[in-house]
């Protein structure tokens, strides 16, 4: 079973919005937990890979804040860390549960111009290829006996600059090939129609409308903050967790 990408996108936008407007620590903890629960159901290994790097940056931010702002601002530091955790966890879930095509379909649903959609989408699609290039270029350097790990930090940076230069050259060459491929696929086209549109049926429709309502409630809370609305806003996303699966 697969999550509906449109529902997932609305959920992601809601979590980001709530993370930005809520300041209460307990509420932020509840928000972080709400972003972790879906992963129990879908068990995607990618989530943990993405979160590994997020956790590292969270720890760094915590210590930097403590050093720069001092222990008196501990509550503020923790709230910032919780915000970052909830946002990165939501993005990790979104990335783990969607594919390149899903993101394109969501963007096309919101009538984003096709050229923008494909510029964004293709950069996502070829990101792993570019990472592979970087690794391969370093191997080529090693195969030429070029030292990549100097003792000093300055030497390390200097020895890696040609890798970057080489990657830029390769990416420019690849960009021409991709543009050529887009042309022979008939893109861009004013006649373009999507093959499979995102459909909202049953549970996904229910989840979609609940999340939209929650979004509106969050906007109300932003202008007229009250405890009742805050708890409502935070509890509603839990009720739709199971609704991603079923269509």
């Amino acid at each position: 079973m697969k999550a509906n990408p449109l529902v997932l996108f609305i959920w992601l936008a809601l979590i980001v919005f709530l993370s930005l407007i809520i300041v209460n620590l307990l509420s932020l903890i509840i928000l972080v937990v709400s972003t972790v629960i879906p992963i129990i159901f879908c068990r995607k290994r990618e989530y943990f890979t993405y979160m590994k790097y997020s956790l590292l940056s969270v720890i760094l931010i915590f210590f930097f804040n403590m050093i720069l702002l001092g222990p008196s601002k501990l509550e503020f530091t923790i709230s910032m860390v919780l915000r970052l955790l909830s946002i990165s966890s939501a993005f990790s879930i979104f990335s783990a549960l969607t594919e390149f095509e899903d993101i394109l379909r969501v963007m096309e649903t919101f009538r984003v111009p096709p050229k923008t959609v494909f510029s964004f989408g293709i950069s996502l699609r070829f990101f792993p290829v570019v990472v592979g290039d970087a690794r391969a270029i370093q191997e080529v350097m090693m195969a030429k006996g070029v030292p990549l790990n100097g003792k000093k930090f300055k030497d390390k940076i200097r020895s890696r600059l040609p890798v970057l230069e080489s990657m830029i050259n390769l990416s420019l060459d690849r960009a021409i090939n991709i543009a050529e491929a887009l042309e022979i696929h008939g893109f861009p086209s004013e006649k373009r129609r999507r093959w499979k549109k995102i459909e909202l049926n049953g549970f996904s429709a229910f989840a979609f409308y609940i999340l939209i309502s929650d979004f509106l409630l969050a906007v109300v809370y932003f202008f007229y903050p009250s405890d009742l609305i805050r708890w409502l806003v935070l509890i509603i996303p839990y009720s739709v967790v199971g609704a991603w699966y079923g269509d």
């Binding site: 390149f100 293709i122 991709i178 887009l182 373009r192 093959w195």
Partner: peptide, 30 residues
């Protein structure tokens, strides 16, 4: 047209959507 490098001419993530991509651009019905 089929180009030389298989890596750079495939734009989509899934086999079916890659086949459909050109057809979507022709404006054909679902």
């Amino acid at each position: 047209t089929v180009l030389q490098d298989p890596e750079n001419q495939i734009l989509m993530n899934r086999v079916e959507t890659e086949i459909a991509f050109g057809l979507e651009n022709l404006g054909l019905s679902g």
